[in-house]
Design a protein around this nucleic acid. Structure first.
Lengths: 338, 338
DNA sequence: TTGAAAGCGCTAACAA
DNA sequence: TTGTTAGCGCTTTCAA
């Protein structure tokens, strides 16, 4: 059967506590020779501590949840943008000696259930809208640290990490305005008065304001999917005949729009400029290559984990939200209007 | 603090075992009224069983590992093809009342460590080469069920699920041959005598054999990445001037090749036809849209989980490997040679 | 520097 | 149909 602490203790002729201390690196409490002897036996016998037993006996489980939306009984909704984040989060946790529980959330109650059943030390919320986050965390238990990625929620239970969406959209709109565009469509999911898309919309408008221009209502609502973008692209020039450019809140949407435009005989960028947000790998593979706003995704994930582990281990107060820089990547999908 | 079994038992005026039986659905052992009363209290108090405690006391943890390669200290290597699989596996496990531990594997020893520390009931290996799988599972403990995705390993410790790679490549080569191509390059990672790429190579050659043609050595080695494909595409027509078509073992590679060809002034499909494997979403977004071999990815994942849970719960013997159908998706990147 | 006792929350195997 | 006993493997607390 399994090699236990007791086995090691017996073989070393010491108590379980001594072995426990050695295994957990509390070396101050054990003599050097004992440490070495125990370590040798541990290696020989291939002893691996039982995480369940440790989690049960100690306050901490060293387990972190990664909670992702999963529309009712459905598969996880991991967008291309979020894939990289998942990988980075796992890596950072592993480096810190934590394990990752990946869990799809179909109903709010599942958050509390996930948190409690495995006594998670904390959890990262990835891919939820701000409105949902408040609802989800409302029922959460007090002890666990929560961190939401891409959140602007003022919820004191969660810390947030996000890119500078406001500035990103500002840069995007500025770029199009500088090229000479005036009739620019804003395409993105419908939004409330808080959240990523709201920020981008505000930044977008600010660019017009700083240029002394007024932006006439040219808001188009679309899901953040290729299919939705394609459909939008197909009818764009008939619904907005005078538009010369589109800013989409996500690359995948922008790429769909480009396809829809191409299908209806419009050429990018000579007829219409298209600008995205995210800088997915994919965006450099399509034709024309997409001009977009790039986020530092690995950094976003690394900081998320740092903050989370910080509040868990240091019992620091949840830190203020952190905002990461973005930058414009000029490629081939934008040009001066004709 | 936490609501425990004992709390519920006290409040209901019964023993812990009775509550335990109700919670675990062993209703045959409890009277209907008791069941109802206990269930009411459980709901009222928001009782959630402790998975660690259960795992410690019972044989099973209801935790499954998803083990993914993570080149030394690096982030997880989740290819576009594997992302969908991760999501589906989580979903299937959740439906079955299991949880998923996502873990990057940098060194063989980490497999056993992951398995043991959380007393995993089983694990899915995703993204490993067959050669690695044997090495990884060698040290694994006996009890846990292992299942490798896309594996042809004869290893008795693991069951495998994979697409019909042989037939996929056969269909691909047949398609190109029927279009009239004779000088076809096979582009893929270097391979040994077992595994996915080996199968595809065998299928590819078989198509020539059945057409009574001999395939002259036109094997090009490249990593399964866009960058590697692009580089390959750039030098393809100078290294193989008479080639009229390329079969790549992965869409992402094929897309890179198309880009490299375009950069050096060759047009797809009029100068060179390109055919991929996987049918990523992405492959329909690029220009020209990629002709490819489609796999049923959700099904692959669902079957993987079914098999794994089958051997875990039913203690059935590891089943024979399962092979899933593939089909040719004809799009715009292939045409008759000039 | 080391050890003993108690218990984390649960379930298996019996007993009643 | 229900309860009792005895742990699962570890850490905490306190004593030596």
């Amino acid at each position: 059967m399994r090699v236990t602490l007791k086995d090691i203790a017996d073989e070393a002729g010491v108590s379980m506590m001594t072995v426990s201390n050695v295994v957990n690196g509390k070396r101050a409490r054990v003599s050097p020779e004992t440490i070495e002897r125990i370590q040798r036996i541990v290696a020989e016998r291939g002893y691996v501590p039982s995480a369940s037993a440790r989690s049960l006996a100690a306050k901490s489980s060293r387990l972190i949840g990664l909670l992702v939306p999963a529309a009712d009984e459905d598969s996880l909704m991991i967008s291309p943008h979020n894939v990289a984040i998942v990988g980075q989060i796992e890596r950072e946790l592993r480096k810190g000696g934590y394990h990752l529980l990946l869990r799809g959330i179909a109903a709010p109650a599942e958050v509390a259930e996930a948190l409690q059943s495995w006594s998670l030390d904390g959890a990262v919320l990835l891919g939820f809208l701000d409105e949902e986050i408040d609802r989800l965390t409302a029922r959460a238990v007090g002890k666990v640290s929560l961190l939401a990625i891409d959140s602007y929620s003022a919820n004191p239970l969660t810390t947030g990490v996000r890119s500078d969406d406001y500035t990103g959209a500002l840069l995007a709109a500025r770029h199009l305005l500088e090229l000479g565009h005036r009739e620019i469509v804003f395409a993105g999911p419908s939004f409330s008065d808080v959240g990523v898309v709201h920020e981008r919309f505000a930044g977008f408008q600010a660019a017009f304001a700083e240029a002394g221009l007024s932006w006439r209502e040219r808001l188009v609502s679309a899901n953040t999917t290729h299919a939705s973008g394609r459909e939008l692209g197909r009818r764009l020039m008939s619904s907005h005949p005078s538009a010369t450019a589109v800013f989409a809140t996500a690359d995948i949407l922008a790429i769909g729009i480009m396809e829809g435009l191409a299908e209806t005989g419009f050429s990018v960028p000579s007829d219409v400029s298209v600008l995205g947000f995210d800088d997915l790998d994919l965006s450099a593979y399509v034709t024309p290559k997409l001009t977009t706003i790039a986020q530092d995704i690995p950094r976003k994930a690394a900081i998320a984990v740092q903050l989370l582990l910080g509040t868990i281990e240091g019992k620091e107060h949840p830190v203020d939200p952190i905002t990461l820089e973005v930058r414009l990547i000029e490629r081939a999908s934008t040009a001066a209007p004709r």
